[in-house]
């Protein structure tokens, strides 16, 4: 059992199955999920840790602000270039955390360590820990594929596949063993959540690239939601969009954070302020300040933070 199970049970009746699904995705360990022995033996390469049960139980006892993601003294390197210099952050679940800071301070890098997207960059290296649900995701027995199935990502530029709208949304469902009909339902559900359903329901077979930029970005969000992640990472998802499309996505974020743990990188102070519950200010690879959004913006503790949020530091 873990937090997500609870959350979903709270939110909708059908959640039982979803929740266990997501739990197994993350943890899948013998301690947590009473899965058949064969299952564990085979999948355990990704998830053998035993900490699951107690961590999950402990977390459940806490409030909904219990951390689902925790970075502990995280250092990352591109070759010899140290980008994150000891970041420690605890991100509570089912809320939206904004990462702000000047260009090049390591926000994207941090975000991408959360779903191991940087694994593919030659020379990239991590020190310290990133815990998701109490499990160190850089432990050798963690399978990044299963991790990413749980930690979805939306990129700065909309990046739909050159396929139909429908095919884009169902793309990540390969390997979920869903029938065509189930996939279709899942697509509808995700497109609704992404606020795109009404705009595309009559043209699902049309090429996704024919959509506007804002629609494409919402399609990418729908695509990420379709695999039912628990965590959603968004790297400046509105920076390539016009103000109206951005507003739509902001509204969407407010909805999403009720159900998902959202981590948002934003260059737009107003946006960060409007949508986030807590906010982390990055500078030169370090977290200068982290706290409730209101406090960070209204009453920053650090001189550099106030300089940045008031626009005096670029």
């Amino acid at each position: 059992m873990n937090l997500f199970e609870q959350r979903r049970v709270n939110e909708n009746g059908r959640a039982g199955s979803v929740a266990v699904g997501s739990r197994a995705m993350t943890l899948g360990s013998a301690a947590v999920a009473p899965a058949p022995a064969a299952d564990i033996a085979e999948v355990s390469s990704s998830m053998r840790a035993a900490s699951g049960a107690s961590a999950g139980a402990a977390a459940r006892a806490q409030t909904s602000t219990a951390p689902i993601i925790a970075a502990e003294n995280l250092r990352t390197y591109y070759g010899h270039n140290e980008v994150l210099k000891g970041v420690s952050l605890k991100l509570p679940q089912r809320s939206l955390t904004a990462l702000i800071g000047p260009s090049g301070c390591g926000k994207t890098t941090f975000l991408r360590t959360l779903n191991r997207m940087n694994d593919h960059i030659p020379g990239f290296r991590v020190e310290g820990k990133v815990l998701v649900d109490g499990r160190d995701i850089y432990a050798p027995d963690v399978d990044p594929v299963l991790l990413r199935r749980r930690v979805g990502m939306v990129f700065q530029r909309p990046n739909p596949f050159p396929l139909s709208i429908l095919a884009n949304v169902t793309w990540g469902l390969r390997g979920h063993g869903l029938s065509r009909k189930e996939q279709r339902e899942r697509a509808e559900e995700s497109l609704m959540k992404a606020g795109l359903w009404d705009e595309v329901k009559d043209r699902l077979k049309e090429p996704a690239l024919r959509l506007s930029g804002g629609q494409q970005q919402r399609l990418c969000i729908a695509r990420a939601l379709a695999v039912r992640p628990d965590i959603l990472l968004m790297d400046e998802p509105t920076s390539a969009l016009d103000p109206r499309a951005s507003t739509k996505i902001e509204e969407l974020m407010l909805e999403l954070k009720k159900e998902y743990t959202v981590v948002l990188v934003s260059h737009n102070m107003h946006q960060a302020r409007r949508v986030s519950d807590q906010c982390a200010f990055f500078l030169h690879g370090e977290v200068v300040e982290y706290g409730p959004t209101e406090q960070v913006f209204e009453n920053p503790q650090d001189e550099r933070t106030s300089a940045y949020v008031s626009g005096r530091l670029g």
Binding site: G16, G21, A24, M25, P34, A35, E42, V43, H176, G177
Partner: peptide, 17 residues
């Protein structure tokens, strides 16, 4: 363990292989 997860993990084993 519920059916959906079960199925996913079973399929995942195949996918990984």
């Amino acid at each position: 363990m519920n059916a959906a997860t079960d199925r996913y993990m079973r399929l995942y084993r195949r996918r990984k292989l």
